[in-house]
């Protein structure tokens, strides 16, 4: 049983620590965000949802960094997150620009509007 094995190996002798709380939040944010990406209709909300998914991922990375801290927290995930934030904001800004352009030209605010109009 792989499950049992992992449990015995990983969790033994651990108490509740800060990073566990944030890992839980991370999984919640990732799931809520993914639900939002697929279910929200409005472009605006879809874009916000991708940012929430991103926040979930970054929170996990930083929690891992905190878990693996020695004299300082593991800097590699921190660097990954900083890079990730910039990349995610770039993508979100582009998405927002597209959404806005679509809104200005057609006054549509969601993909469903498009289908209704055609």
């Amino acid at each position: 049983m792989e499950w049992g094995r992992a449990k015995a190996g990983a969790v033994r002798g651990r108490t509740m620590e800060t990073h566990f709380i944030y890992m839980a939040v991370s999984s919640a944010l990732f799931s809520v965000g993914m639900a939002g990406v697929f279910l929200c209709r409005h472009f605006f909300k879809k874009i916000i949802a991708t940012k929430i998914v991103g926040a979930g991922v970054f929170l996990l990375l930083v929690s891992i960094a905190e878990r693996d801290a020695d004299t300082f927290a593991d800097p590699v995930p921190h660097a990954m997150v900083i890079t990730g934030i910039v990349v995610a904001v770039s993508a979100a800004a582009f998405a927002l620009a597209l959404a806005r352009r679509i809104r200005i030209e057609t006054s549509r605010a969601s993909f469903e509007d498009e289908e209704a109009a055609e």
Partner: peptide
């Protein structure tokens, strides 16, 4: 306009896809 709408759909799918990939990477790195 048609290209813009299709592009936005593409972009959101792509961003969500790469973030899911990154989540997996985070788990593996951990």
């Amino acid at each position: 306009t048609r290209a813009m709408i299709a592009g936005l759909r593409y972009l959101i799918a792509a961003v969500a896809g790469s973030l899911a990939y990154l989540m997996g990477v985070a788990l593996l790195y951990g």
